[in-house]
Amino acid sequence: MDRRQFFTGSAAVLAAGALPLLWARRPALSAASAAGAQVAEAERFEVDYSDAEWRARLTTAQYDVLRQEGTERPYSSPLNDEHRAGTFACAGCGLPLFASNAKFDSHTGWPSFWQPLPQAVGTRADTSYGMARTEVHCRRCGGHLGHLFNDGPPPTGLRYCMNGLAMTFAVA
């Protein structure tokens, strides 16, 4: 057996062994996501539409983020480069969420803020995908906005890492 045959055979064995393991993990990931969705469904929010109404009100991409807890690709949102004075609001219900003076460039590819407006967002534990994070949602409609991390700038030290698809922007 030469080196090429050895490495080709080893790669095939590893791939064959890893594929079932990866596939076996898929239901666990789906179950974790489903558990998060069940928590959201159990909560009551002021703005409450049926699934069909949400689909009619939102674009497909917005629906994926706001209602299915999806994540947009980094650096894909125009709101990441929005630097004018104004307010970022929930794309689902219009609730003002963040003032532009709380926005900063986190170099992560998503609009980031060091603090939300008062009474704008809610949080809950998110253990999907084997990670422990804090999920951020709109206080009024429950729409998924992004996640909260403890690596932001002063004065709070927090980073509200938001999906641009989950928000709109209005100039002050």
Rank of each mutant, 00 (worst) to 15 (best):
A120I: 06
P20R: 10
E41K: 15
E82G: 02
N101V: 10
E46G: 13
L14V: 14
R73L: 12
A40K: 13
T123P: 00
A34T: 13
R25A: 15
F113H: 03
C90Y: 03
T168W: 05
E72R: 00
D51G: 12
A132E: 11
Q62H: 08
S33F: 12
P153C: 09
C138S: 01
G142P: 07
R124F: 01
N101D: 14
F113I: 04
F113K: 05
H83D: 12
A120M: 07
V121S: 00
A37F: 10
G109D: 06
A99Q: 05
C141V: 11
P118C: 03
H137V: 14
A132G: 08
G143E: 00
A99H: 09
S112Q: 06
G122N: 13
A91L: 10
T134D: 04
L95M: 11
H144T: 01
D2A: 11
E69P: 01
F7I: 14
L148Q: 01
A32G: 05
P111M: 10
A28D: 09
D105M: 09
L79G: 07
R44P: 04
K103E: 01
L158P: 00
L21V: 13
A132I: 02
A125E: 14
L145E: 00
T60M: 11
R26C: 11
L66S: 03
T59E: 05
R124V: 05
G146Y: 00
C141E: 01
S106A: 12
